[in-house]
């Protein structure tokens, strides 16, 4: 018997852990989540709590049932539940959120082998499944005061809905001018999924993750930049007439670019691969928004690029030291 522990080198480790990373990602989502509660009220809070509880509980039950080590409290299931709720309407019935959470954890994550082995972002698949199952409920938004001056009416359309159905001018008049439109989009006082509205708070959380090194700034910058560029080029009145600023702040782009397109598990590992991923996700988003049937395409664009990730990884392997070629 040895008096000392024997193991392969190295014998010291960095302090970073998976729960450490995951809980900090949760923390980065908190400002936008808190804003949602203030802006959309109690239903938003209920949906987020239900999303988290069902995600964590289904992971716990699955792992116990499968006799696996329980990692349900490592923060990753919590992110899935929270992101799922945040990417859907605040007035969605809570039982649907619960079903989405269970689907995301059991089908997308655990049945693929658990954390690290899922190909698709669990929250996004959960959302896509609900979209297919309850299309009406999934596109029913909060009723809120129409902001156009002098009109005392209620509207339940998101800015992207208005753009898709009534055009850009209607969008401007709804918000009472371009400056008002930008301001409300930036602060988050607009209709939409409950956690996606506040550009400024999502940016804040994103910057924290970049500062922590969990997110490479390249991914959100390239994805959002691609959306801005393409929406400007393919504007409503011909080339170079679009409103990139609106498109960059609209829909779930901020939430998706900072928190979904940066989900380590489902995106490429090298910077080169991540750039390809971000360009693809941005381009598909624009394609859906401008040409497709849905007003918003962030969720599907990221899912499609998730599917390409193994392929991208294969073709963007780093150059091995001493292999010749570019240094």
């Amino acid at each position: 018997m040895s008096e000392y522990t024997i193991s392969s080198s190295p014998h010291i480790r960095d302090g970073e852990t998976i729960p450490g990373i995951m809980w900090r990602v949760n923390a980065a989502l908190l400002p936008a989540a808190a804003f949602a509660v203030w802006w959309f009220g109690v239903p938003a809070l209920i949906n987020m709590v239900v999303g988290v509880i069902f995600a964590v509980a289904s992971e716990y039950i699955w792992q116990r049932a499968m006799h696996q080590p329980v990692t349900a409290f490592d923060g990753s299931a919590c992110i899935t539940g929270l992101l799922l709720a945040m990417s859907m309407s605040p007035v969605l019935p809570p039982y649907m959120v619960a079903i989405g959470s269970v689907l995301a954890i059991v089908v997308v994550k655990q049945s693929m082998g658990g954390l690290g082995f899922n190909i698709f972002n669990p929250a996004h698949i959960g959302r896509a499944a609900l979209m297919v199952s309850w299309p009406v409920a999934m596109t029913t938004w909060t009723k809120m005061q129409d902001m156009s001056a002098g009109v005392d009416a209620m509207t339940s359309a998101t800015p992207l809905n208005i753009l898709k159905l009534q055009g850009y001018d209607a969008l401007l008049s709804t918000f009472g001018g371009q400056a008002n439109l930008y301001w409300n989009m930036f602060i988050g006082t607009r209709n939409g999924s409950l956690g996606e509205t506040s550009t400024v708070l999502l940016l804040l959380g994103g910057l924290y993750l970049i500062g922590k090194g969990y997110v490479n700034w390249v991914v959100p910058v390239v994805m959002i930049g691609t959306v801005g560029l393409l929406t400007f080029v393919f504007g409503p009145a011909g080339f170079f007439t679009g409103d990139p600023l609106f498109h960059m702040m609209a829909g779930g782009l901020m939430l998706g670019a900072f928190f979904m397109a940066t989900d380590m598990v489902t995106i490429p590992m090298t910077v080169k691969g991540q750039v390809i991923f971000a360009i693809g996700a941005g381009a598909i988003t624009v394609l859906i928004r401008l040409v497709g049937g849905y007003p918003e395409g962030v969720c599907y664009s990221i899912l499609l690029m998730n599917a390409l990730t193994p392929l991208i990884d294969r073709f963007t392997k780093p150059r091995i030291f001493g292999a010749g070629g570019d240094k």
């Binding site: 014998h11 970073e16 990692t71 490592d74 082998g113 690290g116 380590m264 598990v265 995106i267």
Partner: peptide
């Protein structure tokens, strides 16, 4: 100095 948590799945973080 030597202790660290249990081994978990790779989360493909790329570090």
């Amino acid at each position: 100095l030597t202790e660290h948590g249990p081994e978990m799945n790779c989360i493909r973080c790329g570090r």
